[in-house]
């Protein structure tokens, strides 16, 4: 499988990149590390005329601390993210999540920007052109059928980015730059919930992700990422759980965010369980019951590997482990 014919452009400035995007219209794709896009191109999941590489824009490589937050350029590789001392100290869950993506070879090319913008995946979609020719076009490929649910309702490709739940749990904001100017939004808002066009960029907005801002958590806030995959390299997560927890001096839950990846069309925020936890005294019983409750909030789909029941069971387990670990040092019960 060869790459389609393309023209490669590598602008030196954000504005230049935006102008190119404007000129090319829908016939261009932006490439960051390329670990996902290169395969998609070979499989003809995308056939842009132009590829716009961002490696020559210097500020896209920054890792800096400013105004109580960490600011990351989108072109930092996952390897750079996981080995940065600043991130290890201030955002350990992000460092850990970056360390668990794909394989070491992939991490030395894949970027945080690419992970934030990662397309959703499906076993009927992420296949070669020949493979897909054996059946009706699905939603994501431009058709109007979902082979997963065998229904015409909607696309069900899964959101599987590892870093995103952690970033959202940390309360990250992102900067999107367009020709009209820059806007800052919370990362949560970037995702559409539509598996076909899972984020604003893939949904057609002519913007570039230029920065990821993560407020440095206060001392008492603890964040963790728990990932589950059968092989501990190469594979995407079956489910990933990010938790950030703020316990007060009385061991009560002042604030908590629980986010999952791998089990929906977008990062899934666990809301009902959060309500159950807020203001509650942190103990093992509470954690167990909430974990089980939380896993009822997701609707995993059958894959070749697992049934929804199995995924829910694992989600429940990983949520519990994440909660236990997050509550660990502060929580008096642990």
């Amino acid at each position: 499988m060869h790459l389609p014919d393309i023209v490669y452009l590598s602008p030196n400035k954000t504005t230049e990149a935006l102008e190119v995007i404007e000129d090319c219209g829908n016939s261009c794709s932006v490439i960051a590390g390329g670990t996902d896009l290169m395969v998609a191109l070979k499989q003809r999941l995308q056939t842009p005329k132009y590829l716009i590489g961002l490696e020559n824009i210097p500020e896209f490589k920054k890792i800096e601390e400013k105004d109580e937050s960490i600011r990351l350029g989108p072109m930092n590789t996952l390897d750079e993210i996981s080995s940065s001392d600043l991130i290890k100290t201030k955002l350990p869950a992000l460092s850990q999540a970056a360390r668990e993506v794909g394989s070491p070879l992939l991490r030395s090319q894949a970027t945080i920007g690419g992970n934030v913008c990662l397309n959703t995946r499906c076993r009927f979609y992420n296949q070669s052109q020949f493979w897909r020719s054996t059946r009706e076009k699905c939603y994501k490929a431009g058709g109007s059928y979902c082979h997963v649910t065998k229904q015409k309702e909607k696309c069900n490709a899964a959101f599987v980015a590892d870093l995103v739940p952690v970033l959202i749990a940390y309360g990250a904001n992102i900067k999107l730059a367009g020709l009209a100017g820059e806007k800052m939004l919370s990362l949560k808002e970037f995702y559409t919930g539509d598996s076909c066009f899972p984020n604003q960029i893939l949904n057609g907005d002519r913007v570039i992700l230029t920065e990821i801002d993560i407020p440095i958590p206060k001392n008492n806030i603890r964040s963790v990422y728990k990932k589950f995959r059968f092989r501990r390299s190469i594979d995407f997560p079956l489910v990933g759980v990010a938790v950030s927890l703020d316990l007060d001096e009385n061991n009560r839950c002042r604030d908590i965010n629980i986010l999952l990846t791998g089990v929906g069309s977008a990062p899934v925020e666990i809301k009902k369980a959060k309500k159950e936890l807020l203001g509650q005294r942190w103990d093992d019983e509470l954690v167990s019951s909430v974990a089980s409750l939380a896993s009822q909030e997701i609707r995993p789909l059958k894959t070749n590997l697992v049934s929804p029941r199995y995924t829910r069971e694992i989600a429940s387990l990983k949520i519990k482990e994440a909660l236990q670990e997050a509550g660990g040092k502060n929580g008096k019960n642990y």
Partner: peptide
């Protein structure tokens, strides 16, 4: 459904 090393899970 798994004609690749990503989805055909041979030992690592």
């Amino acid at each position: 459904f798994n004609p690749s090393f990503l989805s055909y899970r041979l030992p690592l």
